[in-house]
Design a binder for these strands. Structure first.
Length: 212
DNA sequence: GTTGAGCGTT
């Protein structure tokens, strides 16, 4: 999905992608387009969003047509205050500027599928010198900002309302607690005490295709 | 409604 409504991403073989970081979560491609378009020919702008919520992830990809324009945009728009946040513009590892980079690994020569395609012997001999370029991305985690998911809420749901300890009931604290419960039960609005509501949608029978 | 290192889709 692109802002330009094309049926897919434009050919990246002639485009230079820029990675825009540190933008606000509310910034859309429409907001970035006029900024980047002033410094060059913007081919496409794409903002990855969350599959579930559809919310922005806080970064965008801007594709320029020429490298000099992209470089100028990086130099001019890097650190630009957008919506109260300084966005960081840098070259993305995608497109012609990273034509030799795939999956974080530098491909010096194009893979030529010859007759011995079965041989998957990883000859790391000549690749050892390229290890310097391999940055420490292994420890990079996809932990998003919403990494604070704690679903351990209802761990122990033990109710001791039926538990009557004769020897312990003499405690005045117990009387006070029961009195509060009684007060809460009496104060509870009857309209709110609906246990369950039958919904006809719940009785769907044909919808078996669960979209992932 | 919040958050803040990073690298992407029809």
């Amino acid at each position: 999905m692109s802002r330009f409504g094309r049926s897919g991403p434009p050919p990246i073989r002639d485009t230079y992608s820029l990675l825009v970081l540190n933008i606000t979560f509310r910034t859309t491609a429409d907001d970035l387009f006029p900024l980047f378009d002033k410094y060059g020919e913007v081919v496409d702008i794409y903002i990855p969003r969350d599959r579930r919520t559809g919310d922005s992830r806080g970064f965008a990809f801007v594709r320029y047509k020429y490298e000099d324009e992209a470089q100028k945009a990086v130099d001019r728009l890097d650190g630009r205050l957008v919506d109260g946040r300084e966005m960081m513009v840098q070259f993305a590892k995608y497109g012609p500027n990273a034509e030799r980079i795939q999956k974080g690994r530098i491909m010096e020569t194009v893979p030529k599928p010859r007759g011995r395609s079965r041989s998957r012997s990883p000859r790391r001999g000549y690749l050892s010198k390229y290890r310097d370029d391999h940055r420490g991305r292994d420890s990079r985690r996809r932990s998003r900002s919403r990494s604070g998911d704690r679903y351990g809420r209802d761990r122990y749901r033990e109710r001791d309302h039926h538990r009557r300890s004769r020897s312990r009931s003499t405690s005045p604290d117990d009387y006070k607690r029961r009195g509060r419960d009684s007060f809460l039960a009496a104060h509870r609005s009857p309209s709110r005490s609906r246990s369950r509501s039958y919904s006809p949608d719940d009785d769907r029978k044909g919808g078996r295709d669960s979209l992932s």
